[in-house]
C-alpha cells in the first residue's frame, strides 16, 4: 500500500462545553489537493491546528508521511508547511529575514536556504521588496509572504488556512495559481476555505464540514451526485420546440425537458457527456440552436442540501 501523505481519523476537540471538532477524518495523497469547505466557525481551523500539531487532540490520530503527529513530533512537522489564517510574520523584519528565520527552523542553512529564499520570493512576487520591512507591505503582499514562508522548505504537505481572506482579486488569483502549480509538482495540499469557487477550482476532493463534523466527502462530481442533482441545460432556439421536447424526453440521461418561447430547458445527468446527443436530437427535430447554457449544480447547492443553510452564514 502506498503511503498517504496525510491520514487523519476520529479527530475530536472540546473547548469547555463546546465540541469544536467531532470525529473528523480524511486522507490526502501526494499531488492531491483536498479542500475543507465550510462556513466560518465550522471547525476548519481547529481541525487544521490538530493536524499540524499546534493543538492537543482530545481524540483521533494524525499521521503525516506515515509519521505520527503530536504537538511535539518534530519529524512529522518537518514534512508539513503551514500557512496560518492570520498573517504570522515579524513586522519589524524584512521579507527575506522572515523567510530565512523560518527556514532555519526547518533546519535549512547556508546556500541552500539563500537560494530557496530567492526562489520563494520570486514565486510570491516579492523579489523587488525582499529587503523592506514587512510592516510597510500592503495587505496582499503580507499574505503572499505569509504563504511563502509555508512553501520555503518544500513540504510534502502544505496546509493553507483560508489564504485568500481579505485579499484583492489580483493577489487572490496569483495565490490560487501558485497552489495549482504546487499541486502539479506533487505536493499534497490541504486547503480550507469558505469560498465555494476556490474549492471547485482547486480541489480534487472536498470535505464539507459543518458543526465540527464532515458531512460529506468526495470529488465535486461525487458530491453533486450524492445529493442527486442534475445539470441544468438551457438551449436558445428558433422555431417550434414541441417535437424536440418530446424527442429529448425519450433520451437517456435527460430527466426532464421543458419547452418555452424560444428556449428549451432540460435537467440532465452529466450534461457534458450527453450534450452532443442532445444537440443532434434537437437539430434533427428541425430546431436551430443559437446558444447553449449549462448550469452545473455546485457545491453551494450541495452544502445547502446537506446542512439546510447557505455557505456564508
Amino acid at each position: 500500500m502506498t503511503q498517504r501523505t496525510l491520514e487523519c481519523s476520529g479527530l475530536r476537540k472540546v473547548f469547555d462545553d463546546l465540541v469544536a471538532v467531532d470525529d473528523v477524518g480524511f486522507h490526502i495523497d501526494a499531488g492531491e489537493t483536498y479542500g475543507l469547505l465550510g462556513p466560518n466557525g465550522a471547525g476548519k481551523t481547529t481541525s487544521i491546528s490538530m493536524i499540524s500539531g499546534l493543538l492537543m487532540r482530545d481524540g483521533g490520530t494524525v499521521t503525516v508521511g506515515g509519521r505520527e503527529m503530536t504537538t511535539t513530533s518534530t519529524d512529522a512537522k518537518a514534512l508539513l508547511g503551514l500557512v496560518p489564517q492570520d498573517i504570522a510574520v515579524y513586522p519589524d523584519l524584512t521579507a527575506r529575514e522572515n523567510l530565512t528565520f523560518f527556514g532555519r527552523l526547518y533546519d535549512m542553512d547556508g546556500k541552500t536556504l539563500k537560494a530557496r529564499a530567492d526562489e520563494v520570493l520570486e514565486i510570491i512576487g516579492l523579489s523587488d521588496r525582499a529587503d523592506d520591512r514587512t510592516e510597510d507591505f500592503s495587505g496582499g503582499m503580507k499574505r503572499r509572504l505569509n504563504i511563502g514562508i509555508g512553501l520555503l522548505h518544500k513540504p510534502a504537505l502544505l496546509i493553507l488556512d483560508e489564504p485568500t481572506v481579505g485579499v484583492d482579486p489580483q493577489s487572490r488569483n496569483a495565490i490560487l495559481e501558485s497552489v495549482e502549480h504546487l499541486s502539479r509538482e506533487g505536493m499534497a495540499v490541504l486547503y480550507t476555505t469558505h469560498y465555494m469557487e476556490e474549492a471547485e477550482r482547486l480541489c480534487d476532493r472536498v470535505g464539507i464540514i459543518d458543526h465540527g463534523q464532515i458531512k460529506a466527502e468526495g470529488t465535486r462530481r461525487e458530491l453533486v451526485q450524492m445529493v442527486g442533482q442534475h445539470d441544468r441545460v438551457r438551449l436558445e432556439t428558433t422555431g417550434s420546440v414541441d417535437a424536440a421536447v418530446a424527442a429529448l424526453d425519450a433520451l437517456d440521461g435527460v430527466a426532464k425537458s421543458d419547452g418555452g418561447d424560444g428556449s428549451i430547458e432540460l435537467l440532465v445527468i452529466e450534461a457534458g457527456e450527453h450534450l452532443t446527443e442532445i444537440l443532434s436530437v434537437v437539430t434533427e427535430s428541425g430546431v436551430a440552436v443559437s446558444g447553449v447554457d449549462i448550469d452545473e449544480p455546485n457545491l453551494e447547492s450541495v452544502f445547502l442540501h446537506l446542512t439546510g443553510r447557505a455557505l456564508r452564514d
Binding site: 500539531g53 499546534l54 504537538t71 519529524d75 512537522k77 504570522a88 523560518f102 527552523l105 526547518y106
Partner: peptide
C-alpha cells in the same frame, strides 16, 4: 500575538 509563536510550533521546533 503576531501568531509567530504558533507558527514556530508548526515547524519542527519544540515549545
Amino acid at each position: 500575538r503576531l501568531g509567530v509563536a504558533r507558527r514556530m510550533i508548526a515547524t519542527p521546533t519544540q515549545v
